[in-house]
């Protein structure tokens, strides 16, 4: 039972991070390799708002969420917008550069010390006993619920929302979308904002659950195989991919060698790239578009 809980929690973490990769890729064909850094920035923003909204945790969290949305939009407006029309590789390398810059800045501002935003907000993190004998910490449970809500929300938004439909259209054919009067820059900015928002939420919840250090970015990178295994342009894919990667990691810890947990996501990724490079739920044409 505990094994199942562990798989669900880890998968939820990966899924919440992975949907950020998918959102941006689906709309603008850019792979955001700074996602791990943006996610950590979200966690540090929470730490900052916790200090300025002392005694009002709800306001602090709300402020951090709004700020992270703004960060994503600003990244697009001031940086990635300049890369539209450039080689895809150039855009990806720009995100790599952005990641490097952010990592440096975060250490400068918040140092490399271990931090506890949960403590700063005055939250306890008691474990909840589940029927069937498993246990889950409060924030891990919140994270699972958040992931479910985020995915549910995104499905509805992309299916029925006015801007969601625009985002899908821009992803399918930017030229036609632009001719139909869709403001591509606004759509891209929205994608970056939402992606950073979901990533930041993952960062905040992980930090609330178990503390915050500057090595969190690596977790962002480990979630990235999940997005690819499922198919970079598919949200369902990201969910399923996260489940596969999470399960593979937890099971290899439990039954094979805990050390393998570091490489297993990438081994699954390589296997997938050999067998079905466009991912489980991705569209095949994607391969030729990049």
């Amino acid at each position: 039972m505990q094994l199942a809980v562990n798989i669900v929690v880890l998968s939820a973490i990966y899924a919440l991070i992975a949907c950020g990769y998918v959102l941006i890729y689906r709309v603008s064909r850019v792979l955001n390799l700074a996602h791990g850094e943006l996610m950590m920035l979200g966690a540090y923003l929470l730490l900052a708002t916790a200090a300025s909204f002392a005694g009002n945790p709800v306001a602090a969290i709300a402020a951090a969420v709004v700020l992270s949305l703004a960060v994503g939009i600003l990244v697009y407006v001031f940086l990635m917008r300049k890369m539209t029309g450039e080689m895809v590789l150039a855009a990806v390398l720009t995100t790599v550069a952005l990641g490097t810059l952010l990592r440096g800045l975060m250490v400068l501002i918040w140092s490399a010390q271990q931090q506890y935003p949960g403590q700063a907000l005055g939250f306890a993190n008691p474990a909840i006993a589940l029927p069937g004998g498993g246990r889950i910490s409060t924030f891990a449970a919140i994270l699972v619920v958040t992931t479910a809500l985020v995915y549910g929300g995104l499905f509805v938004f992309l299916r029925f929302g006015r801007w969601g439909v625009r985002m899908r259209a821009a992803g399918q054919n930017p030229l036609l979308a632009a001719q139909r009067g869709i403001n591509l820059h606004a759509v891209y900015a929205l994608a970056w904002g939402l992606s950073t928002l979901t990533g930041s939420m993952a960062g905040m919840l992980i930090a609330l659950d178990s503390g915050l250090t500057s090595s969190m970015t690596v977790i962002g990178l480990k979630a990235f195989p999940a997005a690819l295994v499922g198919g970079l342009d598919s949200l369902v894919g990201a969910l399923v991919g996260a489940l596969i990667i999470g399960a593979a990691e937890v099971l290899s810890i439990q039954y094979i060698d805990p050390l393998l947990s570091d490489v297993v996501p990438f081994l699954v990724l390589i296997a997938m790239l050999i067998v079905r490079p466009w991912g489980l739920f991705g569209t095949r044409e994607e391969l030729d578009r990049v």
Binding site: V88, V92, V263, F266, I270, L273, P277, L287, D288
Partner: peptide, 21 residues
Amino acid sequence: LPSLRLRGLYLAVSTLALHFV
């Protein structure tokens, strides 16, 4: 080997994975 099937981003990703291995 992946480069025979993959291009661009996907290729970059496969080399990244091999780095970890």
